[in-house]
């Protein structure tokens, strides 16, 4: 595998955002998007959106339902090909690569956290986390060892053999975070990662997500319509009808 070793965090538990002075581990632009546009039939989902992501920094994408947040995330992540505009990863144009190459790119350089975790219900937590690593060609033993380290550093020690159904919502999302980070991605994409959780649990998941991606030097994009959730991120954009109507640097 061609990625940097993981750097587990050992910060104490808290459910309030860390102080504003938290030093950003900026390492040059990880991803840049210019003029992204996307239509579905007659619906304009994106109408010219620019995004800059730095390694170790996090961006909250906010806005009401239907404003184009998920479409933006999918275009950035190479799940969708934009109709117009460019996406570059570490200076390389990736937005319009073919299906196969984008698929490889996602496997190798991106991590994903979904609203409902989308863990494989029949596999134990540890195997769920190991899966992306195995997709990259690691053997089962290596992948499982790495997954165990991640579980330990995310406070999931002892739950290795539990299935997703035997985990709480917050624990399941932490498993999803570990799964997103195990391959050492350049960018982590999270679409409504706290959408299925209560406030306190959502805050805990956001703390783990932002801290671990920052420590790993990865850029993080979090789609959310919840301002408290966005408050955990370094920057935010506000979308409406496929355009960015507001930008803010939170820390």
């Amino acid at each position: 595998m061609d990625h940097a070793p993981i750097t587990p965090t050992t910060t104490p538990r808290s459910t309030t955002p860390p102080p504003v002075s938290a030093p950003p581990a900026t390492a040059g632009p990880a991803m840049t998007a210019r003029g992204l546009a996307k239509r579905f039939g007659t619906t304009t989902a994106l109408a010219g959106v620019d995004v800059d992501l730095d390694g170790g920094r996090s961006l909250a994408v906010m806005g009401p339902s239907g404003s184009g947040k998920s479409t933006l995330l999918h275009c950035l992540a190479g799940i969708l090909v934009p109709d117009a505009g460019t996406v570059t990863l570490r200076g390389r144009e990736v937005g319009t690569l073919g299906e196969r190459e984008r698929s490889l790119l996602r496997r190798r350089h991106y991590g994903f956290v979904f609203q409902f975790g989308q863990l494989l219900s029949e596999l134990p937590a540890i195997e769920n986390i190991a899966l992306p690593s195995m997709l990259l060609g690691a053997n089962r033993r290596q992948a499982t060892e790495l997954a165990a380290q991640w579980m330990h550093s995310l406070g999931l020690a002892g739950m290795e053999q539990r299935r997703p159904g035997e985990l709480s919502g917050g624990q399941a999302q932490r498993v999803a975070v570990a799964r997103a980070l195990i391959t050492g991605p350049a960018v982590v994409f999270a679409d409504e990662p706290t959408g299925a959780l209560d406030q306190a649990t959502g805050a805990e998941v956001m703390r783990v997500l932002t801290e671990t991606t920052r420590a790993a030097g990865a850029a993080l994009v979090v789609v959310t319509h919840d301002a408290t959730v966005a408050g955990w991120c370094d920057e935010s954009i506000e979308m409406r009808d496929g355009t960015v109507v507001d930008r803010g640097v939170l820390r």
Binding site: I79, R102, S103, R106, R107, F112, L131, L135
Partner: peptide
């Protein structure tokens, strides 16, 4: 759950 297949596709699984 079709979401699980979608997730695997997003993750770049062949």
């Amino acid at each position: 759950d079709p979401g699980v297949v979608e997730a695997a596709r997003a993750m770049g699984a062949s």
